[in-house]
C-alpha cells in the first residue's frame, strides 16, 4: 500500500472510531465514568504515597538521638567518641551541645513558662549535661547507637543515651501505618475498578460489534483487511482512556490544589505541594493517566474483538 493510501486509511480508522464513540453515547459515558474513578484513585494514591513519604522524612529529620556526656569526660574523649559515632554508616551528623548551650536551648523552648525558668536558674550551670546530638539517615537503626556507646571504652564519657522524642516516633509510626493502608487500599480499589472498567469496555465494544455486524460482514466480503475492521474499535476504546485520563487528572489536581493550599505552609507538606504543582510534573501525571487509560481500553477492546469479531476465519 502506498504512503498516501496508508495515510487515508489511518485517517478513516481514526474518524470511524471517533464517530462510534458518539454513536454509543450512553455506553461511552458508562465506560468512561468507571475508568475515571479507577484512574483518579491511582493518581491520588500516587499523590498520597509521595506525601506520606515526604512527611515521614521531614518528621524523621527532627528525630535525633542524644548521647549525654559525663562531667568527667575530657575534650579528647569527646572528640574520639564524636569521630567514632560519625564513622557509623547510618549517621548523618554529630553535633556537640555544651552544658551552656543545652541550658539556653531549654530556656528558649520554655521562654513563656516562668516556673521552669526559675527552676533552671536555681539548678545552676551544671543542671543539664553536655551532649552529642546525632542525626541518622535510617531511623530503624537508631537503637544501634545505644549499643555502640555502651561499649566499655566509652563508659567514662557516656552518662546516658536518649533515642529521640517519643511523640515524634509515634507520629512517624502512625504516618507509616497510614501510608501502608493507603498503598494496600488504593492498589485493591484501583485493581477492582480497573477490572470493572475492562468488563464494561469489553461489553461496550461487544455491543458496537453487534450493532455493526452487517457492516463488518460487508467489509470482509469487499476486501477490508482485519486491521481496517479492528482499527475503529481499538480507537474507540482508546479514546475512552484518553477522555478518562484527562478527567481523572482534573479531579486529582483539583484536590491537590484545594487541599494542598491549606497545608502548603507546613514543613511536612510544603515540599510535596511544590513538587506536584510543577508544570512538568502535572504533564507527566496527565500523560501517565492517559497512557494507563489507553492501556485499559486497548486491552478490553482486543479481548472483545478476539472473542466476537472472529477475523481469523475468513
Amino acid at each position: 500500500m502506498s504512503t498516501s493510501r496508508r495515510f487515508y486509511t489511518t485517517i478513516r480508522i481514526l474518524k470511524s472510531g471517533a464517530v462510534n464513540l458518539f454513536r454509543n453515547a450512553w455506553l461511552t459515558v458508562a465506560a468512561t465514568a468507571v475508568m475515571v474513578v479507577a484512574l483518579s484513585i491511582i493518581l491520588l494514591a500516587v499523590v498520597l504515597n509521595v506525601t506520606a513519604n515526604n512527611a515521614i522524612s521531614e518528621l524523621a529529620r527532627d528525630l535525633k538521638a542524644s548521647i549525654y556526656l559525663t562531667n568527667s569526660a575530657t575534650d579528647e574523649d569527646i572528640v574520639t567518641l564524636r569521630d567514632d559515632v560519625q564513622s557509623l554508616d547510618f549517621v548523618e551528623a554529630v553535633d556537640y551541645v555544651s552544658q551552656d548551650q543545652a541550658q539556653k536551648d531549654l530556656a528558649g523552648d520554655f521562654e513563656n513558662d516562668s516556673e521552669i525558668l526559675q527552676a533552671l536558674a536555681l539548678a545552676g550551670e551544671d543542671a543539664l549535661p553536655a551532649s552529642l546530638r546525632i542525626t541518622v539517615s535510617d531511623l530503624e537503626r537508631m537503637p544501634e547507637i545505644k549499643e555502640f556507646v555502651e561499649q566499655d571504652q566509652y563508659s567514662d564519657s557516656v552518662e546516658s543515651v536518649s533515642l529521640g522524642q517519643t511523640d515524634a516516633q509515634t507520629t512517624i509510626d502512625r504516618a507509616a501505618a497510614a501510608q501502608r493502608f493507603i498503598n494496600i487500599g488504593s492498589i485493591l480499589a484501583a485493581s477492582v475498578l480497573s477490572v470493572v472498567s475492562i468488563m464494561i469496555i469489553f461489553n461496550t465494544i461487544r455491543m458496537a460489534i453487534y450493532t455493526r455486524r452487517d457492516e463488518i460482514s460487508i467489509m470482509k466480503l469487499i476486501g477490508a483487511t482485519p486491521d481496517y475492521i479492528r482499527g475503529p474499535f481499538l480507537v474507540e476504546a482508546s479514546l475512552y482512556g484518553v477522555i478518562a485520563g484527562f478527567i481523572a487528572c482534573g479531579i486529582a489536581y483539583s484536590l491537590v490544589f484545594s487541599m494542598g493550599k491549606k497545608v502548603a505552609d507546613q514543613p511536612e507538606f510544603s515540599q510535596t505541594y511544590t513538587f506536584f504543582t510543577q508544570p512538568n510534573i502535572i504533564i507527566v501525571m496527565a500523560l501517565s493517566a492517559i497512557l494507563v487509560g489507553i492501556l485499559i481500553g486497548a486491552v478490553s477492546s482486543m479481548m472483545a474483538m478476539e472473542r466476537h469479531l472472529r477475523l481469523k476465519n475468513w
Binding site: M1, S2, R5, F7, Y8, R12, I218, I222, G223, T225
Partner: peptide
C-alpha cells in the same frame, strides 16, 4: 464509496 475507502483511496 465504501469499497474505495477500505483500499485507502483519497476523497
Amino acid at each position: 464509496a465504501f469499497a474505495l475507502e477500505i483500499v485507502g483511496m483519497s476523497n
